[in-house]
Design a protein around this nucleic acid. Structure first.
Lengths: 184, 184
DNA sequence: CGTCATTGTGCAACTTGTTGCACAATGACG
DNA sequence: CGTCATTGTGCAACAAGTTGCACAATGACG
């Protein structure tokens, strides 16, 4: 239920074509709501159908032809309505934690390697976020919009820090005994 | 790709019927891989079909009749193989962060209420985890299995702490100025 | 001019997860 | 005995997300 709203948000920030959106979903927006270009095109079609966005007049309706979209008032209204909704945090669903729990039962010879790999990936992601923070949120800028966006980015940063901390502690804990199969 | 492995893990820990599994998914396992009973029954069918689990002989094959499943060697092997897989951490996909980003564009009169609500929910979840920790992981018990399971639970605890921390800071940041629409 | 890589748009099939409901056994209660 | 709540199993339809591929325009290069 969130992809259309992610797209509306992105388009309000700046009207874009499908491919531009895709690229922006690989950066900023995609950091907390990722998506593929196929999904995005499909959703753009639906949103246009629903009268929430429209292709800018200059754009041709031919295939393989760049088409820029902008948000219509109905789209902005729909987004506002969605923002006002309450929605419970969803349960965690993390394959790595599950894998670890399974490892407790069937054993996991190379689990530490995988943990180290994840640790490295999270460190990279954190570094990327910190770069963005430094570039986009210098101390002077302090409008309400910037503030909210900065908080969102801070969420990403804190989350990476959580993973880094946990993975580090997990590695400490595992390596004390090695991680050979407890049975079987 | 993970639900069948979550089920195999749960069944290895203890053979169960569909409903028992469902209940266990509402507690322990479900804390990091949630699922509904419908999905579980469907998956149990597939796993049985695939020869990875079987219904205990005592159980009747009738509808509305309790049926206990246990894991077969093929199932254990499949789980071991899955545990050894590498899998990149998936991108964050969080409606609340998205909502906040959207709020930066269209404004969000009641966002702080929602944040406070989430804060409360995360506090409750944390309290629940801490209870489990105290009950199931006293300092004495220290087998390799317990250690891994404890680390998993610690993951949950740390994650809730991350949310509590972030939400607290977010509320501080927002309330300085109120959160009325920046434009529109 | 041909063809080739790149950019951009999009369909179709599939997998996974959710929602809503139906059906079966069992025991409690009048 | 009837019926009613509870426990337990399960199908069907749908929604969301993923994968794989096809097609169109454009410009570079020979």
């Amino acid at each position: 239920m969130s992809l259309p709203h992610a797209i509306l948000t992105a388009l309000l920030e700046k009207p874009s074509s499908g491919l531009e959106l895709t690229r922006r979903f690989d950066r900023s927006i995609g950091y907390f709501w990722s998506s593929t270009h196929q999904q995005i095109y499909r959703e753009l079609g639906k949103l246009e159908q629903a009268g929430q966005i429209r292709a800018l007049p200059s754009a041709q309706p031919a295939r393989g032809q760049k088409k820029e979209y902008e948000v219509l008032p109905a789209g902005r209204a729909a987004l506002s309505a969605w923002v006002a909704l309450r929605e419970d945090p969803k349960q965690i669903r993390d394959p790595l934690l599950l894998r670890m729990r399974a490892a407790a039962v069937v054993g996991a010879p190379g689990l530490d390697v995988e943990l180290r790999r994840h640790l490295e990936l999270h460190r990279q992601q954190l570094a990327e976020y910190l770069e963005i923070e430094e570039r986009d949120f210098p101390p002077e800028r302090n409008s309400e919009e910037d503030r909210l966006r900065h908080l969102v980015l801070r969420g990403g940063i804190d989350l990476e820090n959580f993973w880094i901390g946990w993975l580090t502690r997990a590695l400490d804990g595992i390596l004390d005994t090695g991680s050979s199969p407890p049975r079987g």
